[in-house]
């Protein structure tokens, strides 16, 4: 019975704290995405700007994000039934967007980031826990290009 109470407490804590963290994170993400709209990240390998590039370098950004207890239990229940695991959608979305933002922040004065790659990997939690896909790392990397300024 005590176990059940602890579990329910953890789930409630996870739900409230987790959704508060998520809302805060999304607010921060959309604010920074707005601020970095001037720096496009593209998946093109070559681009018109490459011809008159003055400088190019590899930029990376990564984020490790964990899902809250509530969503972990929710995903565990969902795993019994099957179907779309909605609980993990926002986790992956947040991690990827955060990683792309950090990649842009690595070189904020660049003109474009070409050949952007995004990679996601799960960090295993260890132990006998079957639900190890609860912490994920997103990595974004690409080549930041600085274009020669006109008239120089």
């Amino acid at each position: 019975m005590a176990d059940l109470l602890i579990l329910m407490g953890l789930i409630a804590l996870g739900y409230f704290a987790g959704s508060a963290t998520e809302r805060r994170h999304y607010r921060s993400i959309s604010k920074r995405e707005e601020a970095f709209l001037h720096l496009p990240a593209v998946t093109f390998r070559s681009h018109g700007s490459l011809a008159d590039a003055s400088e190019s370098r590899l930029v990376t950004g990564c984020a490790v994000i964990s899902v809250d207890y509530f969503k972990r239990i929710l995903a565990g229940l969902r795993a019994l039934v099957g179907g779309r695991v909605k609980a993990y959608e926002s986790l992956l979305d947040r991690a990827r967007r955060e990683a792309v933002l950090r990649m842009k922040e690595a070189d904020p004065t660049a003109d474009i980031i070409v050949n952007t790659r995004i990679e996601t990997s799960s960090i295993s939690k260890g132990g006998s826990n079957r639900q190890s896909v609860s912490t994920i790392e997103a990595l974004a990397y690409g080549t930041a290009i600085h274009v020669k300024k006109k008239g120089t």
Binding site: I73, L74, L77, R78, L80, V81, A87, E89, L92, D93
Partner: peptide, 15 residues
């Protein structure tokens, strides 16, 4: 990429 449905409702339905 993120569903708009309420996770709480999904949780109780599943449980």
């Amino acid at each position: 990429n993120v569903s708009k449905t309420s996770p709480l409702r999904e949780f109780f339905t599943l449980l």
